[in-house]
Every structure is written in structure tokens, then in C-alpha cells.
Design a protein around this nucleic acid. Structure first.
Lengths: 183, 183
DNA sequence: TCGTCATGTGTACAAGTGTACGCTTGGGCC
DNA sequence: GGCCCAAGCGTACACTTGTACACATGACGA
């Protein structure tokens, strides 16, 4: 059995593979992510993997870069739409409660990225860029220290929400943000 | 049914394997952790792996349970030694800056555990127990809401410290704890 | 029309995996 | 002393993995 008729240059093929890669990571984790699984998810032959990407690392890097970019963009958009400090405060509460990590998928992907970055410094440029963008968005409304602390609080509450059974209730989140903002 | 004295081998063999397993996880991550590598690290034959543990999952579960227990115990001990609210506040700052996640090893292991728990609910009993113990230790000094928020803050700042280049400086941490404690 | 060649694909392969299973071993009992 | 039998081990096996590479294909210039 020899090669089937190749589809001539499909410019979206790379992106399709990257999207599929994120799906696979969310589903089975970075460690379960193999060329074969991604190829199947993207409906692309196995050979395409090594053709389009130098190796697994290149694929992971591009996938996580895309993911971080999407989340950071959504985060910034949500905050930038606020026109007063009260609205910004409400936006932060909303983000913790609903927005940024709205889906399990995003939460899992975030943890996978964090774990990778914790063990392998070469992935930290991705998390650093992400965090810098989040903080910059916050600093359009709050002073740098406050922005920093809000960012940490968002991170911490998000993780608790993911790994604990008892979710922080709405009132507690409102209270937390209030304490940070009005010392 | 009778309890027999261990025959030829070191009675602490299981524990040695579990310790070695944590070392391997810290070194190469959960996904790189194999029976063979753990066996080599523990200086134990490969066959021992399947003899002492039903499978990789059982080994991971026991290893992470041990790890979480150690960290939580250290955390609680640090807080319990405080005899006043001021001391407790200082302890929290110290914990963020130095203690709990003092080593890269602990940080990496924590992320590995979080990632596992995020994707596989059966590991969440470990993180839940850990968090419940941390919170209980905090509640010996602070009211429940404050304890909860401090816990989230510790989590968030710790992660930022791990994944960002710009570490929160000491003054910012002091400020953060102060804001949570004195709304 | 036909040859050329970049693009894209199928497949083979060596390395490495978890686990089952039969064999060795040596302490306790007669 | 000599036997017994479970604790513990070495090994084989079926499988999955990433990657290299030979080769089919069709667009395009001559």
C-alpha cells in the first residue's frame, strides 16, 4: 500500500493539528499525548506530524502558546470593557467566578502547562508572557502592587476551585477582592 | 494469618520504593516515571514493583499521599508554634517566602500532584485532605473566611514564584497578608 | 506532451513500556 | 537433618512510542 493522493497544500493543516493537540492534552494529559493520537484527532496521517513539526516539543510549545494567548486575550478584553473602578472590581469577581477558567478543559490545560513549566524552564516564557499580559490588563485599572495581589488571588482561588470539593462561594470571592482593593 | 518476621529483605523496602518514586517524579515528572526507573532509584529489582504494588497508580497514590502528608505536617507545625496572632501572621509570611515550598523539588511535586488531580478525580482526595489540613491549621489562629483567603493567597503567590521570573519581593508579601488580615 | 521535483504520506524499526508467570530461596516445623 | 511453601525475584512477551526514509503524487515549466 503506497501513499494516497496527497491533498495539495492546505494552509490550515498546521492549525488544525495544533487545535487537535490541545484537545488531546485536555483529554489525556501531556504524557498521554502522542503523535498518533493527535494525528487521529486532527484526521491527518501520522507522517504529517514529523513533516509539520520537528518533534513533540515543538508541537506542545505551539499548542500551549496558542492556548495562553487565547486565555490572556479573553481576560484582557473582559477587563478593558470596564469603564470605572467599580466595574473593574465586578469584572475581577466575575472572572474568578465564571469567565477565565469557565470550563474544565481550560483548567486542565492550565495545570498541564504549569506542570510543564515548573519542570522545564524552556516553557516558562509562555507562562511569563501570559502572566505579564494579565498583570498589564489589571494595571490599567489598579496600581501595580494591587494588580499583582489580585493576580495571585485569582490564581489561588482558581486552583482551590479545581482541586477542592468545597468551592468558594460568591460572597467569599467578593469579600476577598474587597480586602485586596481597600486595605 | 500469623504475623511472620520478614524473611530475607529489608522490612522498609516498600517505603524505600515510595521515597524513590517521589525522587523520580521530581526528576522526570509523572509521565517519565516508570517501574524500571523507580526500581533503579530504589536499588530494587524490577520484579519487586509488581510484587509490592498492584500497578503504577497504587504507587503514585501512595507516594503523593506521603508527600502531601509531609508538607501539611510541616505547615501545621510551623503555624502551631505561634502563640499570638502577630506571630501567626509572621509565620504565614515566612511560609510564603521560605518554608513550605522551599525547594524546587517540593514545587515540582506539588504541580505534578495538582495536574494529576485536575485530570483524574480519584486523586483529589489527596489534595482535599491536604487543603483541609492547611485550612484547619490556619483556623486555629484566624476566622474561617480569613483562613480560606490566606490559603488561596499562599497558593497563588507560590505559583507565581514558580512560573514567573519576577518574584514577589518580601514587602509585597507582607502587604498582601496585611490586607487579607485587616480589611 | 512529458519530465522534474517539492510536497506530503505510508511504513518499518529500534527503543522502551507494564505486567504475568514460573523459578529460586531459605526460615520454620517435623 | 530434611522437607515445605510462600516471599520475592528474573525474564519473556505483547504492545506502544517517536522518528527516519523511501516513494507516490500532481503542479508546472519546456
Amino acid at each position: 500500500m503506497q501513499a494516497r493522493a496527497p491533498r495539495r497544500t492546505d494552509p490550515h493543516r498546521r492549525e488544525r493539528v495544533i487545535d487537535a493537540c490541545l484537545d488531546v492534552i485536555a483529554d489525556v494529559g501531556v504524557d498521554g499525548t502522542t503523535h498518533r493520537r493527535v494525528a487521529a484527532a486532527a484526521d491527518v496521517p501520522l507522517g504529517s506530524m514529523t513533516y509539520h513539526f520537528a518533534g513533540m516539543d515543538e508541537l506542545l510549545r505551539e499548542a500551549f502558546t496558542l492556548f495562553a494567548d487565547q486565555v490572556a486575550t479573553q481576560f484582557a478584553r473582559r477587563l478593558d470593557s470596564a469603564t470605572s473602578e467599580e466595574e473593574a472590581e465586578r469584572a475581577v469577581v466575575d472572572i474568578i467566578l465564571h469567565d477565565t477558567f469557565g470550563t474544565d478543559r481550560d483548567l486542565v490545560l492550565t495545570h498541564e502547562l504549569y506542570t510543564l513549566a515548573a519542570r522545564r524552564p524552556e516553557y516558562r516564557t509562555i507562562t511569563q508572557t501570559w502572566m505579564a499580559r494579565s498583570r498589564a490588563a489589571l494595571e490599567r485599572h489598579f496600581d501595580p502592587s494591587t494588580a499583582r495581589l489580585l493576580d495571585a488571588l485569582i490564581e489561588g482561588l482558581t486552583i482551590h476551585r479545581a482541586l477542592d470539593v468545597t468551592r468558594p462561594d460568591d460572597a467569599l470571592v467578593v469579600e476577598a477582592v474587597r480586602r485586596i482593593l481597600r486595605p
